[in-house]
Amino acid sequence: MKTKTWKINKLEKVCEILDNKRVPISQKDRISGIYPYYGASGIVDYIDKYIFDEELVLIGEDGAKWGAFENSAFIANGKYWVNNHAHILKPNNEILISRFLVYFLNFSNLEKYITGATVKKLNQQKLRQIEVPIPLLKEQERIVGILDESFAKIDESIKILEQDLLNLDELMQSVLQKAFNPLKDDTKENYQLPQGWEWKSLGEICEINPRNKINDEVNVSFVSMNKILDGYDNEFSYVIKKWKDVKNGFTHFKQGDIGLAKITPCFENKKSVIFDSLENDIGAGTTELHVIRVVDNVMSKFLLWFFKTDRFIQNGILNMTGATGHKRVPKNFIKNLQIPLPPLKEQEQIASYLDELSLNIKALKENYKTQIKDYEELKKSLLKKAFEGRL
């Protein structure tokens, strides 16, 4: 194996450590500008001045991850500033190429050099002891050339897939907008509806935040917020509890009710679901839900899809109350919300179409995400081959 001919040096022998030149600036003292201000994991701000004007290698001292393939090291070049959360390395380029060092550090599991139980840190003493393989410069150049070219192609493929994922979300919203505004009327409120449709307030056609009355010993489903998936998935999970343990201090619901997150950022993330397959058809859960119980001639799935529209989400955000970070959509907004309501048969047709489209989009998303994961694994495989001398 080629690595048998590679020399091993401690990092302090092949790099100048420039930590004494780094200077932290508190956020209140920073003046906005054009120069990158680097921290442990990359650029955290742009300021009006710089310390460095050369290519250097940075690696997190604290507030970073140092496991294998965690991208703990990176190149900084041009004019920039570095705070005290990143170590600054200047490789001796007569024997070590900066990008080769970055690739090696990101390939390596550096956990054995990390100190601290609660606040983990790669202190300078441990940093100096990291063992770095040093092939001949020509071999380093060959390896870096292959990795640079391969990673560039992989990153471009990942970028295309990530854009495809965004396009699918835009497609879903475009279809939702058309489903609930078939005539494409641009009026902000109570736009024109097709014949047979009518505007109804949610309070007219639903019961908001109902309460259940059942025997204390009955087993029921309990749903916490983190058990409700966000986005367009209509999925949740639950644990089973006695009704007496959850009837007070929690939201009530039953089979077929809609749960709608009311608190930020869950509301914005489209955490909404139809409760089905509940234990004994009854449930309770987080108080950060509004529960909507439909009546005759209203289909739960139709309303759920309405709650997934950007128009509804944006309207809800504008009507939130409470302190920053704890804003909630109030009950009165939900109660007075105007819903474009078609006849029941048309509700069923619209909901069925959206269900099918959603399943197709979900399958495509899973495919794209799998491809992205495969590309990331390919990167790891290339790095492994590179530092095992098999590239």
Results as ranks from 00 to 15, higher is better:
residue 45 D to T: 11
residue 299 M to F: 11
residue 254 K to N: 13
residue 292 I to T: 06
residue 135 P to I: 00
residue 10 K to L: 02
residue 378 L to A: 07
residue 117 A to F: 13
residue 130 I to V: 06
residue 187 T to S: 10
residue 39 G to P: 12
residue 67 G to W: 09
residue 330 P to Q: 08
residue 54 E to T: 09
residue 129 Q to C: 05
residue 20 N to Q: 11
residue 5 T to R: 12
residue 69 F to N: 08
residue 322 G to T: 09
residue 96 L to N: 10
residue 263 I to M: 05
residue 244 K to V: 14
residue 53 D to Q: 14
residue 315 N to L: 11
residue 280 N to A: 07
residue 314 Q to H: 10
residue 46 Y to L: 09
residue 12 E to N: 07
residue 260 L to H: 01
residue 272 S to A: 02
residue 357 L to R: 04
residue 74 F to Y: 15
residue 236 F to K: 06
residue 363 A to T: 09
residue 302 F to H: 06
residue 160 I to S: 00
residue 118 T to E: 06
residue 195 Q to P: 01
residue 345 K to E: 14
residue 229 L to N: 11
residue 132 V to C: 01
residue 363 A to E: 14
residue 376 E to Y: 08
residue 50 Y to N: 09
residue 64 A to Q: 07
residue 66 W to N: 04
residue 294 V to R: 06
residue 12 E to R: 10
residue 116 G to N: 07
residue 137 L to A: 01
residue 213 K to H: 05
residue 109 N to E: 08
residue 95 I to A: 12
residue 255 Q to M: 10
residue 20 N to E: 13
residue 304 L to D: 06
residue 3 T to W: 05
residue 56 L to D: 00
residue 20 N to R: 10
residue 174 S to G: 15
residue 149 E to I: 00
residue 235 E to N: 14
residue 36 P to S: 12
residue 188 K to V: 10
residue 228 I to T: 08
residue 174 S to V: 02
residue 313 I to F: 14
residue 169 D to W: 03
residue 170 E to Q: 15
residue 85 H to D: 13
residue 252 H to A: 00
residue 272 S to L: 00
residue 345 K to H: 13
residue 355 D to S: 09
residue 234 N to V: 03
residue 341 L to R: 04
residue 66 W to I: 09
residue 69 F to H: 04
residue 104 F to E: 11
residue 322 G to W: 09
residue 158 I to A: 01
residue 306 F to K: 07
residue 284 A to W: 03
residue 92 N to T: 04
residue 28 K to W: 03
residue 195 Q to W: 03
residue 73 A to Y: 02
residue 197 W to D: 05
residue 60 G to A: 00
residue 26 S to K: 12
residue 52 F to V: 05
residue 265 P to E: 01
residue 301 K to Q: 14
residue 379 K to R: 14
residue 65 K to A: 15
residue 226 N to D: 15
residue 251 T to C: 10
residue 305 W to P: 07
residue 249 G to K: 01
residue 167 N to F: 03
residue 369 K to G: 12
residue 158 I to E: 00
residue 136 L to H: 07
residue 39 G to T: 12
residue 213 K to C: 06
residue 104 F to H: 09
residue 28 K to I: 11
residue 301 K to S: 06
residue 112 K to M: 08
residue 342 P to I: 02
residue 330 P to T: 09
residue 23 V to D: 12
residue 233 D to G: 11
residue 157 S to W: 01
residue 337 L to N: 05
residue 389 G to Y: 14
residue 104 F to W: 08
residue 229 L to E: 15
residue 61 E to D: 11
residue 133 P to G: 00
residue 73 A to W: 03
residue 250 F to W: 06
residue 229 L to F: 09
residue 262 K to G: 05
residue 113 Y to G: 08
residue 37 Y to F: 14
residue 155 D to Q: 04
residue 118 T to Y: 00
residue 330 P to S: 12
residue 31 I to T: 15
residue 216 D to G: 12
residue 218 V to W: 05
residue 3 T to D: 06
residue 101 L to C: 10
residue 212 N to D: 08
residue 177 Q to Y: 08
residue 80 Y to H: 13
residue 33 G to N: 15
residue 277 S to F: 05
residue 260 L to C: 01
residue 350 I to M: 04
